[in-house]
């Protein structure tokens, strides 16, 4: 995997609580441009929360996030933080694509409507240009014939591919994938993974929370194992799956790979 060393996403000392629950207990992580990092771990380990903190859908209490070298979401001032304006936060989110477990397509808009919504209303692209780009992206995810369909007319796998196209339409600097195949029927998982594999090959910077161990093994440049709000171990997939060092990683891999 050719990843240039420039970091796209950098996280330092990230902490997050939900009430009394300490969900992220000091996360440090850097994802280089073009890198595909897969995060695995038991449910409740904080994987999804980490991803949601990166585009500020959850607000971490402590720590720094840099995207493409810029400190985002807040500045540090003497003794505390000063939050960025909502507009500045939205502008950062516009540069980072996110795909969700439950697709979250907009049901009142057609497939094309879903894809051009943010380019037209956030980036203020001309509608025609956005539409042309949408058709290219639909072709890329194998759904050129569904441009006029509505989300409810599509299978889960098709909806998720539209969701990927919708995120790509913003020309993001990086893509976050939050268990994007977990809600799919088993026979529909492969079509989504194929699209993601293709995206990785095109050099997209990707941070992928997943339970698909084969995908992580084949596509990831690096695999991270999280447990109880901490990164327990990280390594290239061959070593992570072949010879994990930590006993917790071994236990986890044993349970998921046995199935």
């Amino acid at each position: 995997m050719t990843a240039d060393a420039r970091p796209m996403i950098e996280i330092e000392g990230l902490h997050k609580h939900f009430g009394l629950l300490h969900v992220l207990r000091g996360i440090d992580l850097a994802v280089a441009v073009g890198e595909v990092v897969c995060i695995i771990g038991p449910s409740g380990s904080g994987k999804s929360t980490l991803l949601r903190c990166i585009n500020h859908l959850e607000v971490a209490e402590q720590g720094r996030i840099r995207i493409d070298g810029e400190l985002v979401y807040r500045d540090e001032v003497a003794g505390g933080f000063r939050a960025h304006s909502n507009r500045a936060i939205a502008a950062v989110r516009a540069q980072v694509g996110m795909v969700f477990q439950h697709f979250n397509l907009f049901p009142h808009l057609s497939v094309t409507g879903n894809i051009i919504e943010a380019p037209v209303h956030v980036l203020r692209k001309p509608k025609e240009e956005a539409r042309r780009r949408a058709l290219e992206l639909l072709a890329q995810v194998g759904l050129a014939d569904k441009a006029e369909a509505y989300p409810e007319e599509l299978s889960g796998g098709q909806q998720q591919r539209v969701a990927i196209a919708r995120a790509l339409a913003m020309d993001p600097k990086a893509m976050l994938f939050d268990e994007v195949t977990s809600a799919l029927d088993p026979e529909l998982v492969a079509e989504v993974l194929t699209v993601m594999r293709d995206l990785a090959r095109r050099g997209m910077t990707m941070l992928v929370v997943t339970h698909e161990m084969n995908f992580a093994r084949q596509v990831a440049s690096r695999v991270i194992f999280m447990d109880h709000g901490l990164i327990v171990e990280q390594d290239v997939p061959e070593r992570m799956f072949g010879a994990p060092r930590e006993s917790r990683t071994r236990d986890f891999l044993r349970t998921v790979l046995e199935r």
């Binding site: 909502n86 996110m98 979250n104 397509l105 907009f106 009142h108 919504e117 209303h121 956030v122 995120a167």
Partner: peptide, 24 residues
């Protein structure tokens, strides 16, 4: 999830309300 998706696409709260939430 609709709010999340709109926010993740860089929409402000007002834009998300107007274009995504209220029409539904």
């Amino acid at each position: 999830g609709q709010h999340d998706a709109a926010a993740a696409l860089g929409m402000t709260h007002a834009l998300a309300m107007r274009r995504i939430i209220l029409p539904q």
